[in-house]
Design a protein around this nucleic acid. Structure first.
Lengths: 272, 272
DNA sequence: AAGTGGTCTAGACCACCCT
DNA sequence: GGGTGGTCTAGACCACTTT
């Protein structure tokens, strides 16, 4: 708590290599032990703030983990956790044997989160629903057969839905699903919620993961009519390939997201 | 190493609540202590593989951290690290007081990485260059003044560039930068590399972070001509607002990415 | 050789959930 | 109350970089 011996202060502040003044960090405050916010979160916020204020500069080295531990009265493991948050977020770069550096920021690239449609609607405070436009059993052919890795002619479920939110159609969805004889194919089930729930009772077909590809597109005539827009307007196309256990491909399809209603913000340097 | 007392085996395998068979995990192999791959990475791979094979099922609970530690001969902290990787990746959901569960996968949402243009070109194995279309000093007005938070009339640098890769124009870039009297504004400097380097010698203006927004758009007539495409074709628009220390806004602009050459794949459930 | 980050341990205490 | 995950410590050894 009190002032440290001069030897330590020198170790921290005597750097003149343009890297940092360790003392600046302490001015941002210490760790509040009584707080409900964990120490590692507090420290990572202090470090973030130091970068934001220019106390720690891009390209510069931050104090070592042991130094930070001494400055803030934390164990090295706790310091590491704080630093790891920022390394994961892309704000810091840890180089073994050398030190941890403030990253020179990339200004034209970043991480984007494309949320699940129903979650997105809920987080916007609205309600969402799905209007079933059509379902039928079709024989596999062309790209659907290829993407799902099944023989041509195998039976698939094909469905189209319109996902609505805020009283408007926002997303147009087309999907091919593996068809199983024991599958009920209840049309009533498809009105709401994610299609993947259709497989809920079929462990063999239960979705485990999905691969997504986000592309730019323009609305076709039919799509525009369904979405209440004009043909030629910009939109996102989110192609999805859904896998069950054993890498069995169970769904292939795509969503068309209205470009006038969807955009995505970067998560760059955000610490969760 | 050897067989455990029956009491422990029961604790692991006697679950009949449809959650998991702990024994299944061991069949995937143990931790190789001689390996250069850290134990926590090995364990996280084992857990991922277990999900992929259906040994651990979506919605089900995985063994507790202490159980995993006993099964694989690791300390709880190491187990936690392995589990944390998968929690961060969105594959597992840890609930305090209850347990850690395999996530019911979201099949229509995910994380996307939009790489920096020059990095992207390098990773594709090609070379990239930037062709300067124009630079001039302009008075701040309209949206640029608003976005940069400066008075109308303040001097800004306006520039347009065409970013090329694989011998083709791929990205069209327009930017407004804060102009500083001491700034050289060397046109030769702008031919290559990121614009942010223009500020390299000006610590006050050095970029620290950026906010990005990814939108869908269609090529305008001028954009199409520059990019060698037709007007009305789909494209991405990446708007960027770049901050220096103290939240000073130093760059505002946007990149138009050809829709026929760019698409983004999800990182969902990938463990770095 | 000294200092750095990378990994790992064997404890500890806590808040929380379930029964 | 017992089990779970969440946090934290004070060590240890290692690989690596720098001088």
């Amino acid at each position: 708590m009190g002032r440290s011996p001069s030897s330590m202060m020198e170790a921290v502040t005597a750097r003149e290599d343009g890297v940092l003044a360790g003392r600046g960090l302490e001015e941002l405050g210490g760790i509040d032990e009584g707080s409900y916010i964990p120490a590692y979160v507090q420290l990572s916020r202090i470090l973030q703030e130091a970068v934001r204020r220019g106390i720690l500069r891009p390209g510069g080295r931050i104090p070592s983990e042991s130094e930070l531990g001494r400055i803030f009265g934390l164990s090295r493991m706790t310091v590491r956790r704080a630093v790891s948050l920022l390394v994961d977020a892309g704000l810091l770069d840890a180089r073994q044997g050398s030190g941890t550096y403030v990253v020179n920021p990339r200004t034209d690239g970043g991480l984007f989160l494309v949320p699940d449609f129903h979650e997105e609607m809920l987080s916007r405070g609205g309600t969402s629903s799905a209007r079933l436009l059509g379902v039928r059993v079709v024989p596999a052919a062309g790209r659907a057969a290829e993407k799902l890795g099944v023989k041509r002619g195998r039976r698939l479920i094909y469905l189209e839905r319109l996902l609505e939110g805020e009283g408007e159609p926002l997303v147009y969805e087309r999907k091919y699903l593996l068809y199983d004889k024991s599958q009920p194919l209840l049309e009533g089930e498809l009105g709401h919620g994610p299609v993947s729930e259709l497989f809920a009772g079929h462990p063999r077909y239960a979705p485990v993961r999905s691969e997504l590809e986000l592309k730019a597109t323009v609305l076709g005539k039919g799509e525009a009519a369904l979405l209440g827009r004009e043909a030629g307007e910009p939109a996102f196309c989110l192609e999805q390939l859904v896998f069950a256990a054993n890498d069995l491909r169970v769904i292939w399809g795509w969503l068309i997201l209205r470009g006038d209603r969807f955009s995505f913000r970067s998560l760059q340097a955000e610490v969760r």
